[in-house]
């Protein structure tokens, strides 16, 4: 399994295509308009957001509704560090990521023993509590939020380069993570918690690592986003819309796949920009599209295509024989009337 990363002609072709795409992406600011650069920047951020939500929900079985915790922390860390302590922006992003990681460790100890919907609710409520705390905290400007003074005058292309690098990192991390021992453990957990436990997978640690990675990178994305926005404000920074976006991207693209969120992010940003001209009904359309995709292509666009044609662009998945209900065949036959 590990060796097939770069073996085979088609894989080499894929790899070359990938390099070309990446080079093309880096060249965007040299030919694109301000708007184009911003569009690609948003796509990159949302790819990262989607990948990190997917790592939790699609692979570790942790359906988080609280990714906005880390977005907000990233934004506020950057604002506080650069405004009050004069910390350079790049360093601010990293420190923000570390703070988020620390928070995720604390949350993991409290929340990881919860399952399914309990975990989902707890992460969401934590974010809601942070809104109340930040909105009442004078140090961070209470309800008005903070301006990140240091980013004034920074060209969009700089933030775009950062975002592109982060997006690539999230993809690489997910691909390599899933091919590593940790990934094997994750798949064991996703298939069967208790069986994974007895076969020696440390479930807590595996999930903890996923939480840490996800929180760090999501926080960096939050920092980048607020670099481009300049103004970080509690109701928006900790809003559940962030998780909705991540979820939308992953589910539209294909949950549990690496390439799905990339496609999902492009669709999401495109729809968001395109639909914004319709004002109020844009969100209605977005919501309806999400519902329709889940109803009629429940594996997402790429997942459905993969099932039909049996190919995968960035394979990180280990296939197992499963029936349509997700249960192994023997189990189904074994369960009687």
């Amino acid at each position: 399994m590990k060796t097939n990363l770069l073996s085979g002609r088609s894989t080499i072709l894929k790899f070359i295509a990938l390099i070309i795409v990446i080079v093309a992406l880096f060249s965007v600011p040299s030919w694109g308009s301000q708007y184009t650069v911003m569009f690609f920047m948003l796509v990159c951020m949302y790819i990262g957001l989607g990948q990190m939500w997917n790592l939790l929900a699609g692979y570790a079985g942790l359906v988080s509704l609280g990714q906005q915790i880390y977005i907000g922390i990233g934004g506020y860390a950057l604002a506080v560090l650069s405004n009050y302590y004069g910390v350079p922006l790049f360093l601010g992003l990293i420190i923000g990521g570390l703070v988020a990681m620390l928070i995720s460790v604390g949350l993991s100890y409290l929340l990881l023993r919860m399952k399914g919907m309990y975990f989902a609710v707890a992460t969401w409520i934590t974010a809601e509590a942070l809104i109340v705390i930040f909105a009442g905290w004078n140090y961070v400007g209470s309800g008005n939020g903070m301006f990140i003074k240091a980013v004034r005058g920074m060209p969009t292309s700089t933030i775009y380069y950062y975002s592109l690098v982060v997006a690539i990192i999230t993809v690489i991390i997910v691909v390599f993570l899933l091919r590593s021992k940790l990934g094997l453990g994750l798949i064991a957990i996703r298939d069967n918690d208790s069986a994974a436990e007895t076969s020696g997978v440390n479930i807590f640690k595996t999930k903890l690592y996923c939480m840490m990675i996800s929180s760090f990178l999501t926080s960096v994305i939050g920092g980048l986003f607020y670099m481009s926005q300049v103004w970080v404000q509690p109701y928006a920074a900790f809003a559940i819309n962030w998780t909705i976006a991540g979820m939308f991207i992953v589910v539209i693209g294909g949950i549990g796949t690496v390439s799905g969120p990339i496609l999902g992010a492009i669709i999401y940003v495109f729809l968001n920009q395109y639909l914004s001209q319709f004002g109020g009904i844009s969100m209605i359309i977005l919501g309806i599209i999400a519902i329709l995709v889940i109803l009629f292509a429940s594996k997402g666009i790429l997942g459905t295509i993969q099932d039909k044609f049996g190919f995968e662009i960035l394979s990180a998945r280990r296939h197992s024989d499963r029936t349509f209900t997700g249960k192994p065949i023997e189990e189904l036959e074994g369960s009687n009337l």
């Binding site: 989902a120 909705i244 979820m247 969100m283 919501g287």
Partner: peptide, 25 residues
């Protein structure tokens, strides 16, 4: 009912979608 057998995410997503649609309507 159509997605009940497919795990927690699809129902979460659909109700999320409904939430967005209702709010914006």
């Amino acid at each position: 009912n159509k997605v009940l057998s497919k795990g927690a995410e699809p129902t979460l997503m659909i109700t999320f979608g409904l939430s967005i649609v209702i709010q914006n309507l």
